[in-house]
Structures are given as structure tokens and as C-alpha cells.
């Protein structure tokens, strides 16, 4: 893909960037939820089952 105009090139790269940003948000949230999911289970467990 050849770009003759910097503006067109920027439009292309920045559009990808915004999609990436959306993925970052979802990804971080997913990673966080995964990491802390066991904590929630522990939190809900009755006291004497915790180590």
C-alpha cells in the first residue's frame, strides 16, 4: 500500500491505533479478572476453609 500523502498514512495508522486501544482496555480487564478470580472464591469461602 503506497501512501502519497502523510495525512492519509496517519489516518490509516491512527485508525489501527484506536482499535488497539479498545483491545488494550478489554485485555487488561480480562487479565485482571483472571488474576483475581481465585481471590473472589477465597473471599466467598467460609472462614475455616481458608489456609
Amino acid at each position: 500500500m503506497e501512501f502519497f500523502v502523510y495525512h492519509d498514512y496517519m489516518m490509516f495508522t491512527k485508525s489501527i491505533v484506536y482499535v488497539l486501544m479498545g483491545l488494550f482496555v478489554v485485555g487488561f480487564w480480562g487479565l485482571w479478572a483472571f488474576m483475581t478470580s481465585r481471590d473472589e472464591e477465597i473471599h466467598k469461602m467460609p472462614e475455616h476453609h481458608k489456609e
Binding site: H7, M10, M11, K14, S15, V17, Y18
Partner: peptide
């Protein structure tokens, strides 16, 4: 029609 080169787009979003 997102004008992604514009900082005003960023502000709006």
C-alpha cells in the same frame, strides 16, 4: 466517520 487524525476526535471519544 471517525477522523482519527484529529485530536478533537480523541476529545470527543
Amino acid at each position: 466517520s471517525p477522523g482519527t487524525t484529529s485530536l478533537l476526535y480523541e476529545v470527543g471519544l
